[in-house]
Simulated assay, not measured.
Amino acid sequence: MKKITLLLLMGIALFSCEKNKTSDCGEKMCTEEFASVMFKFVDNKGAGAEVKDFNVINQRTGERITANSSIYTSTIKGVFIIVDDNNKLDLSEQGDDLKITGTSVETGQTKSVVIKVSGGKCACHINKISGPEQVAFD
Score class of each variant (00 low, 15 high):
Met1Pro: 12
Met1His: 11
Met1Lys: 11
Lys2Met: 04
Lys2His: 06
Lys3Glu: 10
Lys3Cys: 01
Lys3Pro: 01
Lys3Phe: 03
Thr5Asp: 08
Leu6Pro: 02
Leu9Asp: 04
Met10Gly: 07
Gly11Met: 14
Ala13Phe: 15
Ala13Val: 15
Ala13His: 08
Ser16Asn: 10
Cys17Lys: 09
Cys17Pro: 03
Glu18Cys: 10
Glu18Lys: 13
Lys19Asn: 10
Thr22Phe: 08
Ser23Gly: 14
Ser23Leu: 13
Ser23Phe: 07
Glu27Gln: 11
Glu27Thr: 11
Met29Gln: 06
Cys30Thr: 02
Thr31Val: 04
Glu32His: 09
Glu32Met: 12
Glu33His: 03
Glu33Leu: 00
Phe34Ser: 05
Ser36Ala: 11
Val37His: 04
Met38Tyr: 06
Phe39Ile: 10
Phe39Ser: 09
Lys40Pro: 05
Phe41Ser: 05
Phe41Met: 03
Phe41Val: 02
Val42Phe: 05
Asn44Trp: 03
Asn44Ile: 01
Lys45Ser: 13
Glu50Met: 02
Lys52Leu: 10
Asp53Glu: 15
Phe54Tyr: 12
Asn55Ile: 07
Asn55Ser: 14
Asn55Tyr: 12
Val56Ile: 12
Asn58Leu: 05
Arg60Cys: 09
Arg60Tyr: 08
Gly62His: 01
Glu63Arg: 12
Ala67Arg: 04
Ala67Asn: 04
Ala67Ile: 07
Asn68Tyr: 03
Asn68Phe: 03
Ser69Leu: 15
Ser70Leu: 10
Tyr72Thr: 10
Tyr72Pro: 03
Thr73Tyr: 07
Ser74Gly: 13
Thr75Trp: 09
Thr75Val: 13
Ile76Lys: 02
Gly78Thr: 06
Val79Leu: 15
Phe80Asp: 01
Phe80Val: 02
Phe80Glu: 01
Val83Gly: 09
Val83Trp: 11
Val83Met: 06
Val83Leu: 09
Val83Phe: 09
Val83Ala: 11
Asp85Pro: 06
Asp85Ile: 04
Asn86Tyr: 13
Asn86Leu: 11
Asn87Asp: 07
Lys88Thr: 00
Lys88Gln: 06
Lys88Pro: 02
Leu89Gln: 14
Asp90Gln: 15
Ser92Trp: 01
Ser92Asp: 02
Gln94Leu: 06
Gln94Glu: 13
Gly95Glu: 00
Gly95Asn: 00
Asp96Trp: 05
Asp97Phe: 12
Asp97Ile: 05
Leu98Gly: 01
Leu98Thr: 01
Lys99Met: 15
Lys99Ile: 06
Lys99Arg: 13
Ile100Phe: 07
Ile100Ser: 04
Thr101Pro: 03
Thr101Trp: 03
Gly102Leu: 12
Gly102Ile: 10
Thr103Arg: 12
Thr103Lys: 12
Ser104Gln: 05
Val105His: 08
Glu106Phe: 11
Glu106Gln: 10
Gly108Gln: 07
Thr110Phe: 08
Lys111Ile: 15
Ser112Leu: 11
Val113Asn: 06
Val113Cys: 02
Ile115Ala: 03
Ile115Glu: 02
Lys116Met: 03
Val117Gly: 07
Val117His: 05
Ser118His: 01
Ser118Gly: 05
Gly119Val: 00
Gly119Tyr: 01
Gly120Asp: 00
Cys124Ile: 00
His125Asn: 09
Asn127Leu: 13
Asn127Phe: 11
Ile129Glu: 13
Ile129Trp: 08
Ile129Asn: 10
Pro132Asp: 13
Gln134His: 11
Val135Asp: 07
Val135His: 04
Val135Met: 11
Ala136Gln: 14
Phe137Leu: 01
Asp138Ser: 14
Asp138Glu: 14
Asp138Tyr: 11
